[in-house]
Design a protein around this nucleic acid. Structure first.
Lengths: 241, 241
DNA sequence: CGCTGATGGATTGATGAACAATCTTGCCGG
DNA sequence: CCGGCAAGATTGTTCATCAATCCATCAGCG
């Protein structure tokens, strides 16, 4: 709890250098959870896939209890849905879920735009970097990096609020959205408009054009929401069949 | 996953009435977690108290594994801090934690004020009810209900955004704040200003005075933040000693 | 005196096996 | 077509056990 770096009299001096050594070791269940998370957000495990404990434990080479814990972790993150005595499955996003997530994103990212007026200009650089990454990914026709750069832009936008809890919250939201994003198989025919939209967002932000920036963001989010909603529709269709 | 109420051909018709029967049964570990949560937010277990697994398991009459799971649940909620191989303790809020939580609250509640302009007027009634509860609690000189009513007001304010995920998020934040709130031992000498502040917030909101309402909320949150920060200071002092 | 390194006790991390409770499925009779 | 019933499978929970790690203590040594 005590922040490192402040050498109170009587304490052993803790240099900021040593903070790098403050490794966050991960338990086995967390490692299993990470592996599973990667397979889910990577699209290897599609929404609706059942995740029996024994199977999972066997394939990952851990005990059933450890596998259980991993499932609980992902359940709390929203990537896995868990039903009492019925087991766990890769979560399915309903259209309402997508709508809710985007309502939250709207709230957080609008606040991020508001914060952009008060932060140091250098703080906006990561946003520019994300756009650059997006552009180069589009040129190389790489789907994964393209989406990742898009996500990174919005992550950095929320990051302007400088709140660890908001960052974690947004990260979990984004994790849920990967359930849809993982189902995208190819780039849109014309990725340029997407890049332009982000570029305009960035320029309106640096230009202090709060109102127009908000309007632009609102529209951008609405488009994105419709996109993912159509994916969510397919998801639930395939799920009930 | 499928929303109740839509009777697709071939499905058993599910009337909204039956949704009440869709009970969310709770596992043993969740019950243990609830019991522990109550003791923590109730102040029975002060921040910093160690929570050994065997002791917990014994006192609750469950196995160690179940107790472990309960601790993990509370850890994810932020009420318990967990260190690898070092065990779990009732979480301690640093001043930075309080600052972060209030930054999030600022973001969410400001958005709530914004939403108040678009929701149905009846949607604001719960806010009024919370103020009334606050007033009657102050009259009866009851500490617990007073704080609870205060919390309820802000919960309802965020509730205006109509987002399940934001509601849950706010609930967890509030859970963390209870770590401080539970340490309050008596009402302030003059609870009237607190009630007046909320009343003014409410009236500015119903009056459509967005700007003044925001200013009022900002000030109100700032006061509250300072209050809790001073408690957090005591917490960390008692913790390091 | 202050620091390094080793020892032992205590607690957690993880495993494997077991049993009860519950869900699902398929079958039967009405 | 519907409801009841038994079998099989999966989960919920407990127990016992071992390895890994942390903590406090203490001896050794410059």
């Amino acid at each position: 709890m005590a922040a490192a770096g402040n050498a109170l009299p009587g304490e052993t001096p803790t240099d900021p250098v040593f903070d790098l050594l403050a490794i966050e070791r991960s338990s086995t269940s967390e490692q299993v959870a990470s592996a599973l998370r990667a397979k889910i957000t990577g699209g290897e495990l599609v929404p609706g896939t059942p995740l029996p404990e024994v199977t999972l434990a066997g394939s990952m080479g851990v005990s059933r209890n450890t596998a259980r814990e991993a499932l609980r972790i992902l359940t709390r993150e929203g990537l896995v849905s868990h039903n009492m005595h019925r087991g766990a499955t890769v979560a399915t996003l309903s259209e309402q879920d997508v709508a809710d997530i985007f309502r939250v994103r709207w709230t957080l990212e609008m606040a991020g735009v508001g914060a952009s007026a008060y932060v140091d200009a250098a703080r906006l650089q990561p946003l520019r970097d994300a756009i650059a990454a997006m552009a180069s990914a589009a040129l190389a026709d790489e789907l994964g990096p393209m989406i990742e750069a898009d996500v990174e832009f919005h992550r950095q936008l929320v990051g302007l609020l400088e709140s660890p809890r908001l960052n974690r919250f947004f990260e979990e939201l984004q994790g849920e959205l990967w359930l849809c994003l993982a189902l995208i198989t190819r780039l849109p025919e014309k990725p340029d408009p997407l890049i332009d939209e982000h570029t305009e967002l960035y320029e309106l932000m640096t230009g202090g054009e709060q109102v127009r920036c908000r309007r632009q963001l609102e529209q951008h989010l609405a488009e994105s929401e419709e996109n993912l909603k159509s994916i969510a529709r397919n998801m639930s269709n395939a799920d009930q069949e």
